[in-house]
C-alpha cells in the first residue's frame, strides 16, 4: 500500500512538472524541500530512538549481531561498484545509489539534491525495485537458504515495510535481528550516501 502511494506521488509530480502548471503551495514545497527532508530525518531518528528493546538484545548477541548489516552493506556497495564499472558511471555515484539499501524514498530525494535528478531517479527506482523484489524472494530464501538470509534483500526496510513478511516466513529471533539490521542500515544510509558523494 505504502509503495503504491509513493509511486502515485512520483507520477503526480511528473505530470505536474510536465504540464507546466504553477500551483503556489506546490512550488513552495519544491523550493523548501530541504526543510521537508530535515523533518523526515528527525522523524526517522525518533523511530530509531523508540526501539528500546534493541539495546538489551545487542548485549545478548554480542558483536555477531553486526554480521547481517555488515553483509548487507558490503554486498550492496560491491554491487554498486560493479554497476558503475558496467555503466561507465563515476564510482562515487554508483556506490551512493547502492547505499540506499532499499530505502528508495531517502536515497532518491537525497541523491537528487546532492547529485543530479537522473541519479536520484535511478536511486529511487532501483531501491524501489529492491523493496518490491524482497516481498517475492523472502519466502524462497526462508526455504532454500536460511532465516538470516531473508533479511538481506530487505536491507534498510527490514525494520518496517518488509518486517511483516519476514515474521510470516521466519521466527521471532530473526524478527529481532531484522529490526536491528533495519535500524543499523537506516542509520548508515545517509552516512554512506554522503561519504560516497563526497569522494567524487
Amino acid at each position: 500500500m505504502i509503495v503504491l502511494v509513493m509511486i502515485l506521488a512520483l507520477i503526480l509530480g511528473l505530470f505536474y512538472g510536465m504540464s507546466g502548471a504553477e500551483l503556489p503551495p506546490l512550488n513552495a514545497i519544491i523550493e523548501n524541500k530541504d526543510i521537508v527532508l530535515y523533518v523526515l530525518m528527525f522523524s526517522v531518528g525518533i523511530s530509531i530512538g523508540m526501539q528500546k528493546g534493541i539495546f538489551s538484545k545487542i548485549k545478548e548477541y554480542h558483536v555477531k549481531i553486526f554480521i547481517i548489516p555488515i553483509g548487507v552493506i558490503i554486498g550492496s556497495i560491491l554491487g554498486g561498484f560493479i554497476c558503475s564499472l558496467i555503466l561507465k558511471m563515476p564510482i562515487g555515484y554508483g556506490t551512493a545509489i547502492a547505499s540506499g539499501l532499499g530505502w528508495y524514498s531517502l536515497a532518491g530525494v537525497t541523491l537528487s539534491e546532492l547529485a543530479t535528478a537522473e541519479i536520484g531517479s535511478i536511486a529511487f527506482m532501483s531501491n524501489l525495485m529492491r523493496e518490491m523484489f524482497s516481498f517475492m524472494i523472502i519466502p524462497f530464501l526462508a526455504i532454500h537458504f536460511n532465516h538470516y538470509t531473508c533479511i538481506a534483500p530487505a536491507g534498510a526496510t527490514s525494520e518496517d515495510t518488509t518486517l511483516p513478511i519476514i515474521l510470516k516466513y521466519t521466527n521471532e529471533e530473526t524478527v529481532v535481528l531484522s529490526v536491528f539490521n533495519g535500524v543499523i542500515c537506516s542509520f548508515m544510509v545517509p552516512i554512506l550516501i554522503s561519504f560516497f558523494i563526497n569522494i567524487m
Binding site: 553483509g71 554486498g75 550492496s76 554491487g79 555503466l87 524472494i137 530464501l141 538470516y148
Partner: peptide, 26 residues
C-alpha cells in the same frame, strides 16, 4: 540502469549474508 542497480547489489547482499551467517551464526 535502475534494473542493474537493483539486481547486482541485492544478489550480492543475499550471497554475502548467506555465507557469513552460515559460517558464524549457524
Amino acid at each position: 540502469s535502475s534494473l542493474l542497480f537493483f539486481f547486482i547489489p541485492t544478489v550480492l547482499s543475499i550471497l554475502i549474508v548467506y555465507v557469513l551467517t552460515k559460517k558464524f551464526m549457524e
